[in-house]
């Protein structure tokens, strides 16, 4: 292990680190929105839309991100849709993550007691109001563990962006290895970088989960 090699690479890795963080953040937020939306649509069995979203969730969950990205990046231009690698990456991650989050939310929503729904209905709420005031807030607390696992999963999935040459952490490490042949050093920095991103996230999510479970919510 040559420390000089490592310290020289740090500025480049810092750049990549920022990009990984940013891509993760956008991907996770987008996935949460798409996931919540598609789960609610499935929950309330909105005609046509709910079948469409079910098909989407199954397709996205049961195929690898890599092939989804290849499709977006290499196949879409053939039918006239050309997007930058980063755009493809984000769309791909949200496509995949939205489906995972939808499953997470659905698990939580299905744990909301039928009596709670009945109470909401008896108070005259429509589906939108039921979703907003009853199903979502209570189901969200129950979904937390699954959503947290998905957050970690999605951050790790950004490593696959390396295959379409987005200069995030993994891609940067591979580039450097290709150029300078110092695999031990660069792989070491790469693993440490993922640890720096993920350890605080894991701790934070654990804390949040406990807060939601024992805090003001669900008795």
């Amino acid at each position: 292990m040559n420390w000089q090699v490592i310290s020289h690479s740090l500025p480049i890795f810092a750049q990549a680190f920022k990009l990984t963080l940013w891509l993760s953040l956008v991907g996770i937020l987008g996935s949460l929105i798409v996931g919540a939306l598609s789960s609610l649509i499935q929950y309330f069995k909105v005609p046509i839309l709910s079948q469409l979203f079910t098909a989407y969730v199954e397709l996205a969950r049961n195929t690898p991100l890599l092939i989804q990205l290849f499709f977006l990046y290499y196949a879409f231009p053939v039918i006239g849709l050309k997007m930058s690698a980063t755009t493809c990456g984000i769309i791909g991650l949200i496509f995949l993550g939205g489906a995972y989050m939808a499953e997470g939310f659905t698990g939580g929503f299905s744990g909301v007691n039928q009596t709670q729904i009945d109470n909401g209905k008896a108070l005259g709420m429509n589906n939108l109001q039921l979703a907003r005031y009853v199903v979502f807030p209570q189901g969200f607390a129950l979904s937390m563990p699954a959503l947290a696992a998905n957050v970690i999963f999605l951050i790790k999935e950004t490593s696959i962006f390396s295959v379409i040459a987005i200069p995030e952490l993994t891609n940067t490490a591979l580039d450097l290895i290709g150029m300078y042949y110092r695999s031990n050093e660069y792989l070491f920095v790469l693993v440490v970088a993922y640890a720096i991103v993920l350890i605080p996230v894991i701790l934070l999510l654990n804390l949040l989960e406990r807060r939601v479970r024992y805090g003001t919510f669900g008795d």
Partner: peptide, 22 residues
């Protein structure tokens, strides 16, 4: 849609006292 309108005028209380816990 109709039921939802009507329910605003028909109050109901259940055996299980389910307030919204959150």
């Amino acid at each position: 849609k109709n039921w939802q309108e009507i329910r605003q005028k028909i109050g109901m209380v259940f055996q299980s006292y389910d307030l919204f816990p959150n």
